[in-house]
């Protein structure tokens, strides 16, 4: 029996290493090459911030970054608001007709192929334009709306699961102590949901920052988001400044995900002493 333990752990350890290598070597490679002085990709020409400088001096990269951040901010905020409402409805009103259908439907955007989501949204916008003359031209507003639709689903599910685990008697206790339902929401429900909402906000922010497919469908001329810019540049040939841009993007997303995870974990520990 004593030999089985270490043996198995060696096997598991190599699995782990292989898995992580598979996941992160490409990204690491990209990060390393972003510091490559040489213009030719496979040739290492020494360490340099050259491509980062080039990046900061190119106006179209700046424009795309600003657009992406704007969309991500608006998307995260609006999606958190509506997603929280949907999550509340799913978790709290346990008996309403079509609840199961509604629960299933809210998670559909999570499994729907992005191409389908993008295409259907594009069709929606075109139809809307014919019917009510809006949106005049597709661009930031249509991309934002498209992002909100799928981000909302993620947030609704985060909120719903938090509420499902939470103690309903907390809200009853507040009611019992004289708080009217609206007050209970403000004093008890929302403060308890705050970590979930923050995590959801960050998740929505990074989802929006990452999205290429849906944005490509619903974007119009002159509205190029960062992933779209990277993709179009790559098609014209690999240029090292894109590595630098992608590295920065990875950094931003990693920070967002780490903070979201940290908030959720810390809060869980607080709740279960």
């Amino acid at each position: 029996m004593s030999g089985a333990g270490p043996q198995r752990s060696t096997f598991l350890l190599s699995c782990l290493c292989f898995g992580f290598a598979f996941l992160y070597i490409p990204i690491l490679l990209m990060i390393v090459y972003s510091f490559n002085h040489s213009k030719l990709l496979p040739v290492w020409g020494g360490f340099s911030f050259r491509w980062y400088v080039t990046l900061f001096n190119s106006p179209d990269v700046w424009a795309a970054t600003v657009l992406s951040l704007k969309i991500a901010l608006i998307n995260a905020t609006v999606a958190t608001f509506f997603g929280t409402l949907a999550g509340l409805a799913l978790a709290r009103f346990t008996r309403f007709p079509g609840r199961t259908l509604f629960t299933g439907m809210i998670s559909a955007p999570l499994v729907m192929p992005e191409v389908i989501t993008g295409l259907s949204l594009l069709l929606l916008f075109i139809t809307l334009q014919q019917l009510i003359g809006w949106p005049g031209n597709r661009g930031m507003s249509t991309i934002t709306i498209a992002h909100i639709t799928f981000s909302m689903a993620y947030i609704a599910i985060i909120i719903q699961s938090r509420l499902a685990n939470s103690d309903l008697s907390l809200e009853e206790a507040a009611l019992d102590l004289g708080a009217k339902p609206f007050r209970v929401m403000a004093d008890i429900t929302l403060p308890l949901l705050a970590p979930g909402m923050m995590a959801g906000w960050l998740l929505a922010f990074t989802l929006s920052l990452d999205d290429l497919v849906i944005a490509s469908f619903v974007a119009g001329p002159g509205s190029t988001t960062l992933p779209m810019l990277i993709y179009s540049r790559i098609r014209l040939g690999l240029k090292p400044d894109i590595n630098a841009l992608a590295t920065l993007l990875v950094l931003a997303v990693a920070i967002g995900v780490l903070i979201a995870g940290w908030i959720l974990i810390r809060n869980q520990r607080l709740r279960k002493p």
Binding site: L170, E172, L175, D176, G178, I188
Partner: peptide, 20 residues
């Protein structure tokens, strides 16, 4: 009379203390 207007208070089995 809704719970918030009743001259009654309750101690919950889980205590339901507000964690925050």
């Amino acid at each position: 009379t809704p719970p918030y207007s009743r001259p009654v208070n309750m101690m919950f089995q889980s205590y339901a203390l507000f964690p925050h």
